[in-house]
Every structure is written in C-alpha cells, then in structure tokens.
C-alpha cells in the first residue's frame, strides 16, 4: 500500500492506483468533482491513466452552496 495526502489527510491506496480508483475507494461521483494532484488539474479524460505515487497531494473539490 502507498500513502497519499487527500484533502489534507492521509489516505492509503493500493500501489498503482489511478485517480479513478481513488474516486471509487472514497465513493465519489466522478462527474461532479474537480481533481488536483500536486497542483495540476487532472481532467476527466486523463484520470484513468493518471497513477498515484507515494506522497502525492490530492485535492478533490465539489461545488457547494455559496453566494
């Protein structure tokens, strides 16, 4: 297993996990999130190919209520 930082907290994922695997693990709807890995936006068509590495900083963002 490898450890990444997900939204500021430690998260363990299997080695070789793609961004899409991480979304499945945490139960997130892929269509309604934006994903940033190490300050780089990962577009939907790149998520299944983007493998996570030990120590990666991942931000998963949604739209919530705001004025």
């Amino acid at each position: 297993m490898i450890t990444i930082e997900l939204n500021g907290k430690q998260q363990i994922v299997p080695p070789g996990s793609a961004v899409t695997d991480l979304l499945s693990i945490i139960g997130s709807d892929e269509k309604s999130v934006a994903i940033v890995v190490n300050d780089e936006i990962i577009r939907p068509d790149k998520r299944s190919a983007h493998r996570l590495l030990e120590g990666d900083r991942v931000e998963i963002l949604i739209f919530a209520g705001g004025g």
């Binding site: 939204n7 500021g8 999130v33 931000e59 949604i62 919530a64 004025g67």
Partner: peptide
Amino acid sequence: VTVALRRFNRDQPADDLFSPL
C-alpha cells in the same frame, strides 16, 4: 447561479450541488 468550491467530504454527500443544479 453562484456556487462555491469546497473539499469533497464523504460524510456530507448532500453538500454536492453540482448534479442537482
């Protein structure tokens, strides 16, 4: 309609307004 960016929180899935809007 305005919305705000927030970190995804698996314990509060109702916060996600993207699909409803």
